[in-house]
Each structure stands twice: as C-alpha cells, then as structure tokens.
Design a protein around this nucleic acid. Structure first.
Length: 316
DNA sequence: AAAGACACCCGCCAGT
DNA sequence: ATACTGGCGGGTGTCT
C-alpha cells in the first residue's frame, strides 16, 4: 500500500484533490496493492476550498503518515499567511525523501519553503510569470504539463492534476496500469511530461511492452540488471530496448531500475534493523557506499539521514 | 584526489 | 516512401 496524504489549506482548489483521488481510487480497484488516501491540514477539521465547499482534514500534521504528499493548487497557496504553518512540514517531508506532488500553484508553497531553488518547475502559464517574479532562483516552465526533480513533482494544474496522478500510477505500477485506469475513467492518458499545455488534447493510449520485463526485474533486484540483460530478457537489441523504453515511460531503463532499487532499500531501512551493507547487497547495490550515492541522487538524502529522521518522526 | 575503466545515453545512419 | 531496427561512436556520469 502506498500512503498518500493530501495537504489542505484555506483556499485550495477542490478539483486538484478530486481529480487525482479518482485516479488513485480506481488504481486501488485494479491492483491488489493500491493507495490509501488521507487528508491532512494544520489542524483536524473542516478546511474551506476556493469555491467555498469544505473538506474535513482527517489528521493534523504531526499525525500524518505517508509516502507521498499531494498538494492541491488554489489561490490560497499564493498567500503566505495561509501556508506559513505548513512550511516546516513540507521541508521535513522533502528531507525525508517523501515524494511530493504539487498540482499547479501548490508549487508556491514549496518555493516559499526554499525547496525549488535552481530546479525546473512547471507552472500554469497564467501563474508562471508571478512565480518566476517572486522567486528568481527558479527555472519556471509555463509550457510543459509536469516535471519531476528527484522526489518533487510539479504540474501545470487544473485537469493536469489527473495527468499527474496517472504519471504517478505509471511510476508505481507501470504504464499498462495507468493506461487501463485512463480508459476506465474515459480520460486521455498522455505520456509525455513535455507535452505543451496548449495542445494537450491527444489521446495517446499505448499498451506497454515493458511491464513484464520490469516485473521480472522487480523480483530480482539483487542480481545483475544491466541494460544488456534486460534487453536480452525483452528479446530486443540494447539500442532498441533503451529507445523504446524511454519512449514509452519517459524515463531511461537504467534510471528506472535504480529507482526500484532505492525504493526497496528504503523500505528495508525504514522498516527495521538490517545493516546497510546487507540491504545494499539485497537490493543490487554492491556495497553501502554505492547505495548511499544512489540515495543522494534520487532522494536527496543518505540512508543514515533517513533512518535518523524516521526515529524522530513525531517531532514536528 | 585523480585517472582509467566502464556503463549508459543518444544522434546518426544504413539495412530491412 | 515510411517506419522500425540495430550497430557505431562519442559525450557524460559513475565506480574503483
């Protein structure tokens, strides 16, 4: 189960919560392992959305337990007095390497928290100039649909929250799962993060040839998973394998494998007492040092930091 | 700390 | 003609 916490604040956009939630729910029906979805806010209780409807926050920040933090957009996100109380919380989540998913103007909160410096950040074309103006250190992209930097995702907003949720399902359960959900909900499944906001209208639904290979890889993370071996397994040349893989998933095969390994290792580290060396071997990093560097690359923190943070979890 | 070894990535091109 | 394929080479990043 992947735990998603949805962070509410005064003036959030309801659609940015409802759209992704619909996707995650269907994902739960179609996969044995799905998502659990919970709302959190500075305090438990009702939170007013932009349109006036209220949602109940089921947990306060200090009680929140999650793998992925979903932050809806909304005009409220631009008002720092609304979001000030959330800053340490999102900083903490980022430090811990949790996946943080911003729908459109939610990125204002991360920007305010200083988490987007020097990063490429996707924003709705209407709000992009404002973001760029207020936070000069950020590389704002007002044309793409979404982007990912390590564990932080940003997106253009509104219905692209749905695209973003599909991209997350794709990352977690493979492209075929995401395509299936899109089909069930009658929404287009757009693969390309780089697709223009202006032409976001195509219906690109491709069955995926790589799910089987990746499931196979998932079973044996401790073994050699070089491109050569994966390509052999898929009965393709290395060249064709890398090309087709990138085309269909938007990520290179090697990066994908590394991500699987880091995720598994992280789960092991967080769940218990195993020595880093042992975790590293089990997950296909030959030694702890290599694993450490892979963590820094993909999560932004070292295994040791994550374990330490884990211990202090209740102190926000 | 540096340098050689190695894997990966990707544009290019020729073959099917 | 067009799309798909796979080998090559060089640039880049990572490991030891």
């Amino acid at each position: 189960m992947i735990r998603i916490a949805c962070l509410l604040y005064e003036g959030f956009e309801l659609l940015d919560v409802a759209g992704p939630l619909a996707i995650f729910q269907v994902a739960g029906h179609q996969n044995k392992e799905g998502y659990v979805f919970e709302t959190v806010a500075a305090a438990r209780g009702p939170v007013r959305s932009m349109g006036g409807l209220e949602l109940q926050a089921a947990a306060s920040l200090r009680k929140a337990r999650f793998d992925t933090l979903l932050i809806p957009g909304g005009l409220g996100a631009r008002e720092t007095q609304n979001t000030q109380a959330l800053i340490p919380f999102v900083q903490r989540a980022a430090e811990e390497g949790r996946r943080i998913v911003c729908v459109s103007s939610a990125a204002f909160i991360l920007a305010e928290a200083g988490l987007l410096k020097g990063q490429r950040v996707v924003m709705h074309w209407g709000a992009a100039p404002i973001l760029a103006d207020r936070y000069p250190g950020i590389d704002v992209d007002g044309a793409a649909l979404f982007a990912r930097n390590k564990n932080i995702w940003t997106s253009a907003g509104s219905l692209s929250g749905v695209d973003l949720a599909l991209a997350i399902v794709e990352q977690d359960f493979g492209a075929a799962a995401a395509a299936k959900i899109a089909k069930a909900l009658l929404v287009p499944f757009r693969r390309s993060a780089a697709q223009s906001q202006q032409t976001a209208a195509s219906t690109d639904v491709r069955p995926d040839r790589f799910d089987e290979v990746m499931a196979w890889a998932r079973q044996r993370l401790g073994e050699d998973l070089s491109l050569q071996r994966l390509a052999d397994k898929a009965a393709l040349s290395v060249r064709q394998f890398t090309r087709a893989f990138r085309l269909s998933t938007g990520e290179s095969a090697a990066k994908y494998v590394e991500r699987l390994r880091v995720e598994r290792a992280r789960a092991l580290i967080e769940s218990g007492a195993s020595a880093f060396e042992e975790v590293a071997r089990k997950c296909g990093f030959d030694n702890a040092e290599r694993m450490r560097r892979a963590f820094v690359r993909t999560l932004g923190s070292t295994p040791r930091e994550l374990r330490r943070l884990r211990k202090n979890r209740n102190r926000y």
